[in-house]
Simulated assay, not measured.
Amino acid sequence: MKKAIFFDRDGTLNEEVHFLHKIADFVWTEGAIEAIKFCNDHNYLAIVITNQSGVARGYYPEEDIMKLHQWMNDQLKGHGAHLDGIYYCPHHPEGIIGKYALKCNCRKPLPGMLLRAEKDFDIDMAKSYLIGDGARDVECAEAAGVKGIRYTGGNLYQALMDGMKEN
């Protein structure tokens, strides 16, 4: 079985931008690339899990999310790093786009995205971590049997190292 570090996206890997979907608005947080490279260099899968309710709300199409995530991996390649997986939840029960306007098990704090990644990659959840800026991220981690690390700003790599020592 493999171990993973799951990353929340908005407010963790990138600076918080409300309903981020444009590459031009994306800014890596300090230490984000180094945190991902740490995963790659130390036998952890680097996996993003992110709520993207802007799709259900009609603010942008799923294609924008996919383009942004491809761009992120392209940027990481230039640093000798990569994301192994990216999972997103386009749903929201109050959405206006019919097929996305629903309750689901993948919207954090529910653990659906983590559980899907566990199956897809054969992950040992007890040896894995999730780092995110919201209480719902830590709640999601706990629901999936993963150690949660609350990121409160600053250098993401350092926050990950400190959080892994504590857990």
Rank of each mutant, 00 (worst) to 15 (best):
T152M: 14
E34A: 14
E16T: 09
Y157Q: 11
Y44F: 15
G80W: 01
G154P: 07
I86C: 12
Q158T: 13
A4V: 08
D25E: 15
G11K: 10
Q70W: 05
W71N: 07
I36Q: 02
Y44C: 08
A143G: 02
D10E: 11
Y59R: 03
I65D: 02
R57G: 03
H21E: 12
A81W: 01
G134N: 05
Y44I: 14
P90F: 08
I5G: 05
F6K: 06
C140W: 10
E62M: 15
G54M: 09
R57D: 03
L102D: 09
H21F: 15
V146T: 04
H21A: 14
N167Y: 15
D133Y: 11
L110D: 09
F121Y: 15
V48T: 11
E166V: 14
G58V: 00
N105M: 12
L83K: 10
F26Y: 11
N51A: 07
I96W: 04
I47E: 06
E34K: 13
A101S: 14
P90G: 09
N167V: 03
M164T: 10
I23D: 06
V55A: 10
Q158F: 05
G145D: 03
K127T: 04
V138A: 03
H79C: 05
L45I: 12
Y157F: 15
M164D: 10
D162L: 13
T50D: 01
G98M: 01
K67I: 15
Y87K: 10
R107I: 00
Q70L: 11
E34G: 02
Q158S: 13
M161C: 10
Y87G: 03
E94Q: 12
D133H: 10
L156V: 06
E142G: 00
H82M: 08
A143V: 05
L76S: 00
D162M: 12
M66K: 14
A144N: 06
D124L: 13
G78V: 02
D8E: 03
Y157M: 09
H92E: 13
H21W: 15
L114V: 07
T50L: 06
D122I: 00
R116A: 15
Y151K: 08
L102W: 07
R136I: 07
I131P: 01
Y87D: 04
S128E: 02
I96A: 10
G132S: 04
A126L: 01
I33D: 02
K165M: 04
K77C: 03
L83V: 11
